[in-house]
């Protein structure tokens, strides 16, 4: 805390950037550090200890966590086949985050494009697209995903597609609302007057203005998609073995609750910590991006307390 106050100084000359501010908030700083750690695990981890995740080791069967007898790779314990849980968590991280990232990108692209069309074209096509979003929104997303996934057959591409479809309405509606506003601005009118084609106006003039908003929403939505994927995999209609994500790891461990609680506990904890970190960061970002609230982050701690009295 003292360090944070010292860093801001008595009279900051220029406003601190987001990176410096994030590290002044202990909770947000923890979230950033954890997310970087998880991302590194997902990217590099499988190369380093990926083999341990699939090799059974019968001497380590149901090894309890924090038992040093089998070496550091088994510090989180092992499952019923003696596979290192730490290694499986790392591989699971890659699958979980990879699927979620792909799904977010898909829904960002599909929802964004549809929203762009719906906002720019108006008319029948636009109404149809909006009604489609209503249909998706009016029904519990998990049930819709279950039905679609069961009829298409569970596989990773289908899982990504289904997750993307259930999240499309959010991007579609935001995009449409933004486009409706931006298309009335002066520079779009100027481009029309100069004879720009529709495609040029949409992609060169409107899209660059609205894309940053969409990316922010995508980042915030990431946590929801991670949770949705975990639920689907937990219910057995998501990822299929031998592939696994954190959600399906919890499902596997559910059968051994009374004998080996750690098999189900760790993967769920990883889901919780990841989504919690993402949500802490997005809530911090909302405060940071709101001009009325931002001063709360920029003030030194001591001053902040005095103001509240």
């Amino acid at each position: 805390m003292d360090k944070a106050e010292g860093a801001s100084g008595p009279k900051p000359k220029r406003p601190a950037g987001p990176l410096r501010l994030v590290f002044r908030d202990p909770l947000a700083a923890c979230a950033v550090v954890f997310l970087i750690f998880i991302a590194l695990c997902a990217l590099v981890g499988p190369v380093v200890i990926g083999d341990l995740a699939t090799t059974p080791n019968f001497r380590a069967r149901n090894l309890a966590p924090f038992d040093a007898s089998m070496g550091p790779a088994y510090f989180l314990g092992a499952d019923t086949l003696g596979r290192s849980l730490a290694a499986r968590l790392v591989v699971g991280a890659q699958n979980t985050l990879g699927i979620a990232a792909a799904a977010v990108m898909c829904s960002l692209f599909l929802g964004g494009t549809l929203g762009l069309v719906a906002g720019y074209a108006r008319g029948i096509g636009s109404t149809l697209i909006l009604r489609l979003a209503d249909v998706i929104m009016s029904f519990p997303s998990l049930l819709l995903a279950l039905i679609v996934l069961y009829s298409l057959g569970p596989s990773i591409p289908n899982l990504i597609l289904v997750l993307a479809i259930t999240r499309i309405p959010i991007y579609l509606r935001t995009m449409r609302a933004e486009v409706l506003e931006v298309r009335e601005r002066m520079f779009v009118g100027a481009a029309t007057a100069l004879g720009a084609s529709h495609a040029r106006i949409v992609f060169r003039h409107i899209a660059p203005v609205v894309i940053p908003t969409m990316l922010t929403i995508g980042a915030i939505d990431f946590a929801t998609v991670v949770l949705a994927e975990s639920s689907l995999s937990f219910l057995g209609l998501g990822i299929q073995s031998p592939e696994f994500t954190w959600g399906s790891m919890v499902a596997t461990g559910r059968g051994y609750l009374s004998t080996a609680w750690w098999v189900a506990f760790w993967p769920g904890l990883m889901i919780l910590l990841t989504t919690l970190s993402l949500n802490i960061l997005s809530s911090w970002w909302r405060t940071y991006a709101d001009p009325h609230q931002r001063w709360r982050l920029e003030l030194p701690r001591r001053l902040r307390r005095r103001i509240q009295k």
Partner: peptide, 13 residues
């Protein structure tokens, strides 16, 4: 925030 981020199936287990 934790309540909103927790995977419900895991909390149940």
């Amino acid at each position: 925030l934790a309540g909103a981020s927790a995977p419900d199936f895991w909390v149940a287990i």
